[in-house]
Every structure is written in C-alpha cells, then in structure tokens.
Design a protein around this nucleic acid. Structure first.
Lengths: 223, 223
DNA sequence: GTCTATAAGGGGATAGAC
DNA sequence: GTCTATCCCCTTATAGAC
C-alpha cells in the first residue's frame, strides 16, 4: 500500500528523481505523437524517450518492451474515444442517433490530428497478422461494427429506418467512409473536410433508409 | 544500342550472370510482395534481395537506393491498375459507368491481395510529408478524384443523375468507401466482402441520385 | 526511478574484385 | 551484372551503478 499522489520535492528533484506515474504518462503521450507521425515501425524508443525527457533505459523501466509501450498507447487511445460512443449514463445512442454520434466524433477528431494519425497508421500496419497491434485491430473493428449493427437494428424496430435496411452492410460501409476520410484528410488537411463529407454521407443514408418519422432530405436540397 | 531481348546462355549462366532486365523485374515483384505484407518501412532491402535471388548489393546495382526501388514499385502498380479505369479505346467511363468500373476494379482487387496490401500500407505511411511516397500519394488521389468528379458532372449533363448531385462530395466519399473497405478486407478477408459492400454502396448512390432513366432501387428490395 | 555503459544485431549504402 | 567485404549508424534490450 502506497500513498497515492506523490509529488516531487525539492530534494527528490535535485537527485534526478521524478514521480514515476508522471514520467510514464509523459512517455505515453510522447509515443502517441510519434507513432501518429511516423507509425510504430517508423519510430524508435529512443525518440520517444527523448521527447518524454527520459533516457532510453529510463523509458524501458516503465515498459519492458516496445510492444508493451504500444499496448499502453492503444489502451489510452481507446479510453479517450470510447467514452464518446456511450452517453454519460452508460446507455448507447440507437438508430440515427448513433450516426449523429459518429458525426460528432468526426468533428472532435478533426481537432485532434494526433489521434487520427495514430489510428490510420496503426490500423494499416496492424493488418499484418504478426503485428503487435493485430489483435487490438480485430477487437476494435469487431466492437465498432457490433455497436453500429445494434444501433441500426434498434432503428428499424423503432420505425426510424425502413424494414429493409441492411445492418451489416450499413455498418461496414459507414465505418469504411470514416476510415477513408481520415486517411484523405491526413494527406491533405486543407482540401478535405472530414466533417462535411461525413455529414453528407449520413444525410444520404437518411434519404435512402429513413422513414417519414424523421427528416428525409429530398434530392437537390442543400446540406 | 543493345539488341533488346538478351537471353541467358549456358556460358553466361555458369559465370553467375543473368539478364539484367529480368533480375530487375524479379526485384520489383519481390518488393511489391514484401512492401504489401510489411510496408515500406517494415521491409529491408536485404529481404527483397533474398526473395529476388540476388545479393543486397546486386539489388542496389539496379536501384541506387531503397527509395528508388519504391519508385519503381509505384510505377509498376500504377501501370497495372490505371489501365482499368480507361477503356481500351482510351475513352473514360462516364456517369454511372464510372462507378461500375470502380466496382469491377474492386472485384479484380479481391483476387489480388498483394496489390491491395501494397496500396493500403503505402498510402497510410505516405501521409507523412517526408515519406518518399508522399508526392505519389498526392498525385494518386488528385487523379482519381478528378476522374470521378468529371464522371459525375457528365452523368448530370446526360440526365443520368439528378441536377443536385454534388460531384466533389460523391467522389470523395466513394473513394473513402473503397479505401476503408480494402483496409477492413485485409484485416479479415473471410468476414468482409469488398465486392458485396461496395456494390451495395453504389446501389445506394443510384437510389439517391439516379434519375428514372436508370434503375432506381426502392427501399426494402434485395441486392 | 533513473542513469551510463554495453551487448548484439540489423539497417542502408559503398568499394572493388570478377 | 553480380558478388564479397566492409563501413557506420541506428535499433532493441540488458546489467549494474546511484
């Protein structure tokens, strides 16, 4: 049992000691930024250490290997945007509300290039079965896909969506649009607006699968 | 001036000599496969050399640097699927025909995981401004985007598509769907059918933006 | 908890023989 | 056109001092 918040004292600081948890957190933040910019394979732990203000071995004290550092990074990432897809009360948005939640997530993402870069690069690398983030990628997609499929089923039952709406296909392609837009936006941030394009996509889905209960945009209208 | 097709003779073979063009081509093929599986950063030129049946220096005789090898790989890739988006007579498909051409390309791609892996990994890496394939990625997206925008404009003028159809947004999101599906398919080839999902997407676009001149799928129908 | 030192190997690229 | 030998730097990881 240790007393939770240990702050640095003048004495400990002069001896080069720091709060371990603090150093660890700095390292994770540094790793997110560097993995985001150059990928996991394209980043060395020495670079991460330098940005975190640690020596390479100092860093490896907190994470036994580079893969362990990656695991910590992924955990942090999921924590940061998993909260976004569940409301404060733990309930999940259903029907069109789920698509609106994704649009909101896209809007937030467009202010966080770090996290987007991390995601785009990592999912591409992690396609390889032997990549340390491979299982994470599988879990991630399984989770989002199931979440969205459930939301569409609920939307159908509530009468927000046509009975013929295909949940799997809708989920799959919507996730694909998000990922593809992130990729294009990273490449040319000034030319591509993730928010506009994704909102357009959702509007189109509403026009195709929405029922009269909710706004159906007719061809030729703006927005 | 050299006499174009130089074949290996028993004598040259015994001296360890081979047709240069042949070795070069083997190297490019090997590089495509390895870059596809592990990315550019994740592949060493020694690995490429081994697969091509050359020593590392033998490989570097044909390509002065690893980046030069990458350039050759990208050139080869573009040659292989650029032909697909222009008809035999050099004309380009317009209106819905362009989307059908993309669907056909998707079908072909699903038999060529090598090229898909190459594309997905490389475009993700190449998002970084200092990546050797960055300019290629910019050109690639600019080209496909312009191609599709033109096709949609033509479709509107022909009356195949509603006058309110937004060319840029439609192009952007369709490309995003393709890229995103490729990514998901690479991760789980057995669970994801690029062809089915992309065709579904195109069918939805027809339902939303198509005019009576062409089939409009009504909600609830299959396919 | 953090450091220096070092091991042990891989990376891209060059020189020069054949 | 291809090879062997070599250079030099960067990589991950460990040992042990403080």
């Amino acid at each position: 049992m240790s007393f939770p918040p240990r702050y640095r004292t003048a004495r400990s600081r002069s001896r080069g000691e720091a709060n371990g948890a603090e150093s660890r957190a700095r390292a994770v933040r540094a790793a997110i930024e560097l993995f985001a910019a150059s990928g996991f394979q394209g980043t060395s732990i020495a670079q991460v250490a330098e940005r975190a203000g640690l020596s390479q071995s100092g860093l490896l004290h907190h994470f036994p290997s580079k893969a362990a550092l990656l695991a910590a990074v992924l955990e942090e990432r999921d924590a940061r945007d998993g909260e976004f897809l569940t409301s404060a009360d733990g309930g999940r948005p259903l029907g069109w509300a789920a698509f609106d939640a994704l649009a909101a997530l896209t809007a937030r993402n467009s202010t966080r290039p770090h996290l987007v870069g991390l995601f785009v690069r990592l999912t591409a690398e992690a396609t390889a079965p032997d990549h340390p983030a491979h299982d994470w990628a599988l879990d991630h997609y399984a989770g989002v896909h199931a979440w969205l499929v459930d939301a569409v089923r609920a939307g159908r039952e509530r009468g927000e969506m046509h009975p013929g709406t295909p949940p799997e296909t809708l989920a799959r392609s919507t996730i694909a649009v998000m990922d593809g837009l992130q990729q294009q936006w990273l490449l040319e941030p000034e030319r591509v607006s993730m928010v506009t394009e994704f909102s357009g996509h959702v509007a189109m889905l509403r026009a195709r699968w929405g029922t009269a209960e909710r706004a159906v945009v007719s061809p030729g209208s703006s927005t």
